[in-house]
Design a protein around this nucleic acid. Structure first.
Lengths: 189, 189
DNA sequence: TTGCCAAAACTAATATGATTAGTTATAATA
DNA sequence: TATTATAACTAATCATATTAGTTTTGGCAA
């Protein structure tokens, strides 16, 4: 009975790998235990159970996503910053599909750390929109639009929703630039 | 042992109700059997198993969604048709959350009926875009954009992703009109 | 009408996974 | 070196999916 030196973080990292490899649905405690060379009840020393593990994955994903998107906008502003953020977001979802699944299956439950991380991501979007001077209300509408575009694109791609023979990159560029043009037109009109 | 007169369609309808009530994840054969006053092995007379049931729900959802959106665009064209289709789409996702979940968890597996239904939905989008005369390539990009917007908005709303105090209706209007303006600007520029 | 038969429902049994309770071994530290 | 918290374990329970094999029923043909 060798001590494996596991901790909550090690579980999270391994769980995220499993989810990325075969989908969040097939992330089971049994599979995780096997990957970590441990019997599944042992995992309960580090997480409260499967729901707790998944909730922790959500927070973990948010942290990584905030870090990724923050890096993407450093030294940029305006359309350039938005495009860079969006590309980073989509690249993240594409690279870590299982982890990203955990991100949006947010339990509506209250959670301190979760709320903080979500606010950080929202703040990033808000700050990036500041140069446009849209006012509070319109800024939030526009952010909802961008988030919907990104999330929709990421999940549709993940679930094989885009089957036409047309490069995804080009679609992303078209869609984002179209939305930005609309935003500018709003300002003008 | 009374015959309950079940058939595949009855299972689908009941399964969709269960999914709408408490989420697709909690649609189990056990729960479905209980709802239908039957033991769970009996369900195997009508579906091959849970994966088959879920795949059937996907097709069922697509049929309803095609019907709903088709009705929404009758006698309309241009921006008006697009807005009407989008509102119907979002209303559908909002009204039938569990069924809509089945829609986008499309197994990448091949399925005749599924492909047909998906093509019907795509065709509807294509036809509605015709007045804009964007050309094949740009039409498909624009459709991907609209679908991403709709799907992203629907699922973010469903998972409690919009927590700011700002009416969802207004966001939908803003976002769709912004994208349409962008499309028009593309044509102009 | 009566008997046959396919279909629909059933019971029994197996397998996988989550979870809890209670036990044992280990590693850090007093 | 002895103590102790804890990480890991075994054993057991519960829920679900699924398969195998059995029973009943309702419709249809002789």
């Amino acid at each position: 009975m060798a001590k494996m030196g596991l901790d909550r973080q090690a579980l999270l990292v391994a769980a995220a790998e499993l989810a990325d490899a075969s989908g969040l649905d097939s992330l089971t405690l049994a599979a995780l235990a096997q990957k970590l060379n441990v019997r599944s009840p042992s995992l309960y020393n580090h997480v409260k159970g499967l729901p707790d593990l998944r909730a922790a994955l959500t927070v973990y994903c948010l942290h990584l996503l905030v870090e990724t998107t923050r890096n993407a906008v450093i030294g940029k502003s305006g359309d350039e910053a938005i495009l860079s953020l969006c590309e980073a977001y989509l690249r993240f979802a594409h690279t870590r599909p299982g982890l990203y699944e955990a991100f949006y299956k947010i339990n509506t439950q209250q959670d301190e750390e979760l709320d903080t991380a979500r606010r950080e991501l929202l703040d990033l979007f808000v700050r990036i929109m500041e140069p446009y001077r849209l006012g509070d209300r319109e800024t939030l509408h526009a952010i909802r639009g961008l988030r919907s575009l990104l999330h929709g694109f990421a999940t549709l791609e993940q679930h094989g929703g885009f089957q036409m023979d047309l490069p995804l990159d080009a679609s992303v560029q078209y869609v984002l630039r179209t939305f930005l043009k609309g935003m500018h037109a709003n300002k003008a009109g």
